[in-house]
Structures are given as C-alpha cells and as structure tokens.
Design a protein around this nucleic acid. Sequence first.
DNA 1: CGCCGTACGGTTTTT
DNA 2: CCGTACGGCG
Length: 737
Amino acid sequence: MKPTIILEGLNPAQREAVELAEGPLLILAGPGSGKTRVIAHRIAYLVAEVGVHPYRIVAVTFTNKAAREMRDRVVALLGESAHSLMLGTFHSVCARILRADGEKIGIGRGFAIYDEADQQVLMRQAMADLEVDPRRFQPRAVLATISRAKSELASPAAYMQGVREYFYEVVARCYERYQALLEENNALDFDDLIMRTVVLFRESDEVLRRYQERFLHVLIDEFQDTNVAQYVLARQLAGGHGNICVVGDPDQSIYAWRSADLRNILNFERDYPNARVVYLSQSYRSTRNILDSAHAVISVNRQRKEKELWTEKGAGLPIAVYEAYDEAEEADFVAAEVQTLVTSGDRRHGDIAVMYRTNAQSRALEETLLREAIPYRLVGGTRFYERREVKDIIAYLRLVHNPYDRVSLGRVINVPARGIGQKTLAELDGWAASLEVPLYLAMQRVAEAVSREAPAGDEAAPHPLAPRSAKAVASFVALLEGLREEAGRLSLSSLVTSALERTAYRQYLLGQFDDGEERWENVQELLTVASEYDGLAPEAALLSFLEDVALVTDIDEYDERADAVTLITLHQAKGLEFSVVFIVGLEEGLLPHIRSYDDPAQMEEERRLCYVGMTRAKERLYMVRAFRRHLMGMSAANPASRFLKDLPSELVTRREAVQEEVEAVLRGPSRLRKEPAVPSEAAFAAGERVRHPRFGEGIVVSCTVTGSDQEVVVAFQGEAGIKKLLLSFAPLERIHI
DNA sequence: CGCCGTACGGTTTTT
DNA sequence: CCGTACGGCG
C-alpha cells in the first residue's frame, strides 16, 4: 500500500493528524471537517507505513453504526487484513475484555448485560428488599444517580462515604443492594462494563500489561462525549506507550446528561503535557450560509472557546424558516417540500432527513408521509429489541444460557400463561430464600418432587406449593431443561424454533394480541438475525448472539441503502450528513426542551444540540416550528424557539403561516375550529416570569383557555418544579424586569 | 389463576 | 396520549 493513496486528497492539517504516528495527539475538529476520515486514514497509515499490525490497534467509536462505517473505510484502504482491528464502542470493547479476563475479579464468563428495563426490575426488587417506597424515590431517578456515580468510578462503599443529603443516602443504600442483586444474577449493567474493566486493570497488573502490550495504539472518536470512567480506561490502555489519539468537538457535546464530561478534553492536555494538538477547521460539508447560521446559534454559549471554521463552498441557499400552525401542518409542509425537491429537483428521498428533539414527534410526521406515500425510514423509536415479543424470546435464550438469571426468569415464567401466577411465584421466592438457593434451583426441587409422585396426603410436603401449581412449575422446568439440552447440539436458529414450538408462542401471540400477526413477524425477523449465527459452534453462537443483542441496538442496517427520507432524533443524527435537513419543533419548551430551563449548563447543551442538527445539512436547511402543538393529549401554544431568533436575518427566508393566517383559519371551516382557544385571551404568555406565594419564582411554559378558566403551566425554580395551575385559584403575580 | 375494565400517572435525549 | 397498575369477576 502506497502512502500516496493513504494521504491522497488530505489537506495539510489532516495530513499532519494522520502522519503523527507517535505519542499523544488531540484533534479538535469542527463539523464536516473529516474527523472519521482522518481516523480511518490514520489507522491505515499506521498499518501500511509504520508497520503496526491491525490486531494491535484499538479504535473506539460512539455508536456501533459509526464502528461499521469506520471499518468499511479502513477495509477500503487496507483490504481484508483490517478485520483483526479491535473496533467498537467502549461498551463492546469492555465486554470483550471482560469475557476473556473478567473471571479474575469474579465475573462469570457467561455474564448477562442488563438493559434499562432489566435494571428497573432489579431496582424495584432492591427497593422492596430495603423497604424503600418506589413512589417517593422513583427507580428511574435512583438508577440515573447510580449511573452517574458509576461513571465516576464510585463503588457503593465509596459512594456511601461522600453522601450528605437524605435522597443520596437512600440512593447509596439502593446502590449497594442493586449491585448485590446484579452479582447474584451474574449480570452487568452498561456502566458496569466500563467500571469493572477499570477495576480489572487496577487489580491485575498482569492483565493490564497484557492489553497495554497488545494495543500499541489507542484511538477515540467523539471524545467530547466520553465520561470520566471511559477516559480513565483509555489512559490505562495507553499507559505504557502513550500512543493515544483522540478526536472531538466541544461544540458537539450533547451527552452531558449521560455523564459525558467536557473536562476530559482539558485534562487531556494536562495529563499528556507532550500532546500535539491539531485543529481541523475546514468544513467540507456545509455551505457558508449554513455554517454561518449555525455559528450564530452556537456562539451565544458562554462556556465555550471560539474556534475558526471555514469552507470553500459558496454561500448557497438561505435558511428556510417556516412557521406552521400545528404539528399536522408542520408535517404537511415537510411533505410538500420533499415532493417538490424530489419531483422538480435532482434530490432523492435518501438525501433528505427530518430531525426532532423527542421521539414522540415522529408520529405526526409518519402519519403524513404515509398518507402522501413518501418513503421514509424511522431511526430509533421503539427499538426492535425493546419489543415485548422480542424480549420474551431473548429472555428464554438467556435462561437457556444462565437459568439463574432471575430477571429473565421472572419475565417468562408465566409467558405464555401456564398457571404460575403471582401467588405461586411469591411462595416460590419465599421458599427459595429460606433455603438460600436461587429461584431456579428451588423450582428444580419442586419438579423432582412432582416426578417422584409423592403420595396423596403426604405428611411434611417437600415444598409449599399446591399440587396444581407444582405441576405447572415442573412442566416449566422440563421445558427449560429440554431447551438447555438442545442448546449444546442445535444451531441457534433451530434452538429458537424449538423454543417457539415448545411454548406455542405463535398461538399465544395470535390469541392474545390484536396485532399478533405483526408481532409474529417481529419474531420471524429475530429468527433471521439468529440464523446469522448458525455457522458458529452452538455455545459460542448463543453467547455472541446475546451479547450483540444487548450491545448492538440498531438493526436497521440493511435497509440503509433504501431510498427513503430519514426521520431521526437530533441526538442520533450526530456524525451523519444529508443534502437536505429539516429541523422541526423549534419551539420554547421542546427545543430547547423544558427540562433544561432551570440549569444554564443544560440550556447550553440544547443549543449545541441545535448546532449539531444544523451542521448535518450540506446544502439546504429548513427550520420549522409549530404555533400550537399537541402534547400528551393537550394542545398548547408555544412561542418560537430562541434559536430561531439567533439566526442572522439576512441569511434567512421566512414564510409566516401563523400570525395572519391563524385567525382566518379559526374563522373559516377547518379542523382547527374544534379548539377555539385563542391565544390573545390568555392571561400570560409563555416565557413570562411569575411569582407564586408557595412555589416561588418561575417561568410560564404555556397558558391555555379551558372552558371558562385558564390553565397555566409554570416551571418554578427550585423544588416545586413544573406545576399545572388553574388561573382562578392560583395567586400568580407577574414579575416585571 | 386469568381476563377485562377502569383509574391513574408520567412524560428527553441513548450505549 | 400512552402504557401500566390495580380491582373485580368468571
């Protein structure tokens, strides 16, 4: 491989970033500056020019999708030898390390990876054990706090130390119990994957040294989104040689809520004083108008360092701002523009993306696109592996692999219904606890007793169950044991098929659900995925299938080439680019999201999110808002997003649908007449500051006329939070600034 | 034990 | 608006 090919077409800064083979390197890069390209070329350069075997390189990306893209690029440059590269998310890299060496810190080889739903089940269990009221302390909130602790590498004991407030004291106790339950189930949650790997490296010099010696080069993409634990891990890996290359853009940091810590970028230069810093400031993606508008939005942030970003592209088209009446009209506008772009221009559907803040917003768009017969592809949403029927089948497979997985057992012990209800389960649980054995072992004892056919009127029954329940338990144990026996010799897809047949799962779906047919199709799709593992030895197939299911959440790879409009959240859009981008829902309360109002840091993150969305566009950017929007069944009028106001007016073309037209619409015969809430009658406008004698000061989120009264939603500072108040009862006072 | 109805509560972003 | 939790009935 000649360097001319690897370095071809790179600008001087990119070239420098590729060629600096030794030592720590920090690449700070704006959107569209070719970050991914630089990493891919750097890997190729290391292999082809410096002579590093790909096996000795570890490259970390933020998503699995990015990893696939990276691999494709490297393979294009180097050929098939690139496959021995260790490439993936931090989570998948750690999973592989822990599979190989986790036993040294007591993690069983076949550990399960628990997703958010599993974690909640476990947390509820922990709270029940500790007699903590889940209404007062919401499992979600407790788990989020624990996640933050883990991402800073705080063990339960360490966390307990630093706790002052009552809430955190409760969290600390839950953390301890939750962690114990995870261990009992031989399971790790996402944060454990990172934290336990760090612990493994801390506790075993031998293991750490082995990986340090194997990985001569460490590369990390999207470095602005790493958390403390991930950064510590990266430093451990690069500890010997210091060949660590990180690439990031502080302006695109949008995962602080997931404990991503921008200080990692600052600390990098402190931790590696000899680090070289390369700036990639030329954008190859967006037109100047798009770049300038995005810059106008991001430059309002105070916690930010100004940086240069330029393009050789022309000014291009102005930003199109459109104000729709409601989300239906917003979708109509998007659909109409898409039609125009495709029929009259040279755009394909696949060149176009619609981006939004919350997944719920995709609904209105989908309805319209479906009606207008515009092909679309929804990214994310209810993810495939989160569907009930898919999770059921996976729970069976997990049990086959590890019958002591209490969460999976609880999920399917009575699915399809087989006569093991809550009462039976509670008795079993109590009995297992008194014997100090796992639930499944207790069930096996019940099954044994049943098969021995204890005579009627048996004195001292070996278990507390009624004969009927005991029989049901025995047949479940027989079902699972049958599957476990098959697991050793059948291919994965045959195993799944057997599980489906033994449980009569299809009949269950069709009989139980109105959309049973559709659900069965999802099961069929899962079967297709499973069959891709048929080439592996049975045990290995099951293990890697379960791991991929837990870590690879996107299954939509194959229809990526389909020519369809992409519907995607702003978060998921990171790293992607499209010729045409619509950002919809640019309203106060949505983008920026209402949950970010009381914290300036969070507000800055919303701004970065908007920036990320805008800079996805290559040529044409639409920014759309709706005057009214239905949220959770209610309709509310929201003012335009502050981000719209920050756009330089000379770069924008505006189409007003709202002001003049709204009243005409209300007067005329329209679907909108059903809701005669007239905003001018509202006592408060969104965004106004108000005071309440009990809740203190706050900001009006919305004010809607309901019958003879008005409903005012106020986001109060401090503990009161967001409150819905009736105007006639609430003594609200306007604060004038 | 399972099914069906109703009441209620929670609502961002994701590996 | 959605999904879930709970209570009463077969």
